[in-house]
Nucleic acid binder design. Structure first.
Lengths: 212, 212
DNA sequence: CGGAAATCCTAACGCTGTTCGGGCCTGGTG
DNA sequence: CACCAGGCCCGAACAGCGTTAGGATTTCCG
């Protein structure tokens, strides 16, 4: 429609059906996901119903099954999108492993991760809390999640001063701060203000135990 | 049944119906709650259905409404019970505020709290994660929750060395450790083993900032 | 142009929490 | 003791949920 009719010279013969129809399909899929995020932001993660979602894009509920195999598949696509957004906002991986670089990277990564989580509570709930009864991310989506994790908190693993046990402490402390912030002071900064302090504390512990 | 028939001399005339009928009612309520805990342990917190629960106690679903106004009222009663169990296992509140007492109390309270949480994941989910869509504890149940909290982690507030900001760190770190343990190593001790280390770290931070 | 595939619909299934109405049975009272 | 109000329990049903079946309609490709 937009670019008119194109001859069959641009698409390769091995994948001829990768045009027109498939493009429209993907566009509708994206439109459904956008509507889903909108509903989820308004009504909460579990407030999403297929009839509402279908109505939002001018359909009835069964038509959604042309684009997603189930409601959980929609959640799975949103899960993957969420971690891709996290990947986008992740800090640059450090080049050297000096202590100054470690300190700077730790502060940067921690605060970015914290802000990413509290920016959208519904997304945080989907990505980090297992709150949807039967939902478990697909292997492909889980792969994206691991990659995003490695780029942020997991980036500390590049430093030989940081052990795996240390990393467990970092993730537990940071996710704990986020959960408390969202549960007890949503929209505020009561826990966020203490993130630098927590990072300093964790750095002292991490560096203190590795080279006494 | 157990003590035979009692004359009308023991109950006051202002509350005459506080026997027999009401006692049976409370007993059935307790039986329903016990069955609910059993189902929840087996099928998860959200796996509880009123028809299943009713069948477990030899009833049909509508009969449950003679004992609880709604499913959320059942969750609320379980919520209160859960925090009463937490209250039962809480450590003795310290008498003095010396540093040795603080250190000992912190280690004791932290480990007890951790073990209490991981002992029953469904209970932890009900008490600490807000995972049931429309559920919010009633004011009376919330009162019990606050009391239980004050007896454990909140007991640190008795020490003048511990500020409110410090307390936020304690709760965030501990609940974070618990969540990581349950999510990534259920039944294991990967995070539990680090609880003493976290306590020492928090103690160092708390004591270090209050009296430099 | 013909046929296949994708899309969208209505209807319906089984499940959920919840309400209604009516039987039954029992405890307190005249 | 007889009575009857009230608590208890149940079958039926309602609205909502995710999901499926089957039939139209549209759209694209050979």
């Amino acid at each position: 429609m937009t670019t008119g009719s194109s001859p069959s010279g641009t698409d390769s013969p091995t994948a001829p059906s990768e045009s027109r129809r498939a493009r429209r399909h993907d566009a509708t899929r994206a439109e459904i996901l956008d509507a889903a995020w909108q509903i989820v932001r308004r009504d909460g993660l579990t407030g999403l119903s297929l009839r509402d979602l279908a109505a939002q894009v001018g359909m009835r509920a069964p038509s959604l099954y042309s684009y997603f195999g189930s409601k959980h598949e929609i959640y799975d696509a949103m899960f993957r999108q969420g971690y891709q957004q996290m990947l986008l906002g992740s800090p640059e991986l450090p080049e050297d492993t000096t202590e100054e670089t470690l300190v700077a990277f730790a502060h940067e990564a921690a605060l970015r991760f914290f802000d990413f989580c509290v920016a959208e509570p519904a997304r945080h709930q989907l990505l980090f809390l297992r709150t949807i009864p039967g939902f478990e991310p697909s292997p492909e989506s889980y792969r994206v999640a691991v990659e995003a994790y490695d780029r942020t908190v997991g980036g500390l693993r590049r430093f030989p001063q940081v052990s795996d046990a240390d990393l467990d402490l970092w993730t537990a402390a940071l996710t704990g701060m986020v959960s408390q912030q969202l549960a007890n002071d949503p929209g505020g900064t009561r826990w966020r203000d203490q993130v630098p302090r927590v990072v300093e504390m964790l750095l002292a512990e991490t560096l203190g135990t590795s080279q006494p």
